[in-house]
């Protein structure tokens, strides 16, 4: 079981709720993939205004809700949205997303730090959506966040893990913190890769909602995320730059041994030539 802020979850797959062909397909995708945490935006879902039909549909799902501040461009907007989310969804969890660039929706690191500080002081559990910058992560951790949500690549780009080095650095630097990859994942194999690196969870939306068959894609992600996690827990072998036979040479028929010996001795001869 995955312990996330004192709550236990079987699934490490978090799903977004926008852009599906219909609410029915969204529901089926969540159920088929056994996702237990879904995220939704408040600003345009209308929960703040009269209509809450979409929210009523979501409420029927057996999931925990992680409201987000998608579409906010300033600290003030994001804080106000977080306040509304706390009332509407009855949770102190908030995925803090403050956009710094309109084209690639890159989060604004400076506003993120400022907004996180305010919301933590107000008792929120902040899930900061961030780039993979180490110094930014340190500042957020210093403020007291218990989760970091670095991007794999820009939202909806499907470019996968564009900077594995940076993601590995975050994992190594914060071994005890919950690290969730948020955004940019396009393929199930990329989600598996993030999990193999020791990430605690993966959040995505577009790769599922824009698939030809979203329910099937949700299931595919669910399975590879499980697989990736198991791989991490089992302990991956270290890469080597040379081949090692998995079958020991001892016990192979003698004519094979002879061939091997010939190869080795010719290699040695070549090496002798170079060294002499």
């Amino acid at each position: 079981m995955w312990d996330l802020l004192g709550k236990k979850f079987k699934s490490r797959f978090l799903l977004g709720t926008s852009g599906y062909p219909s609410p029915e397909i969204l529901k089926k995708s969540v159920l088929d993939s056994e996702v237990e945490i879904v995220t939704m935006s408040l600003r345009r879902s209308g929960a703040m205004s009269e209509g809450t039909a979409f929210w009523e549909i979501l409420k029927e799902l057996p999931v925990h809700f992680l409201p987000n501040t998608a579409g906010c461009h300033s600290v003030k907007e994001a804080v106000t949205t977080a306040h509304m989310a706390r009332e509407v969804f009855n949770t102190n969890w908030i995925k803090l997303e403050i956009i710094g660039d309109d084209y690639n929706l890159q989060p604004d690191p400076f506003a993120l730090v400022e907004g996180t500080k305010i919301l933590l002081e107000e008792g929120f559990e902040v899930f900061p959506y961030m780039t993979d910058d180490l110094v930014l992560a340190e500042k957020l951790v210093d403020l007291g966040v218990r989760i970091l949500m670095p991007w794999a690549s820009p939202i909806g780009s499907g470019k996968g893990l564009i900077n594995e080095y940076a993601l590995k650095t975050l994992r190594n630097r914060f071994p005890d913190l919950n690290l969730i990859i948020d955004a940019g994942i396009g393929k199930p194999s990329e989600a598996a890769r993030a999990m193999e690196m020791g990430y605690d969870g993966v959040l995505l939306n577009t790769a599922v909602s824009q698939a030809l068959t979203p329910c099937l894609m949700a299931k595919a992600f669910s399975e590879t995320i499980k697989g990736g996690r198991k791989g991490f827990e089992a302990g991956l072998m270290e890469e080597r730059d040379f081949a090692t036979p998995s079958t020991p040479v001892v016990g192979t028929p003698f004519w094979h041994q002879e061939k091997n010996n010939e190869k080795h001795s010719s290699c040695e001869k070549k090496n002798d030539l170079f060294t002499s």
């Binding site: 345009r44 879902s45 209308g46 039909a53």
Partner: peptide
């Protein structure tokens, strides 16, 4: 296309 019954 906004998931809301908002007529404003």
């Amino acid at each position: 296309t906004i998931e809301s019954e908002d007529f404003s």
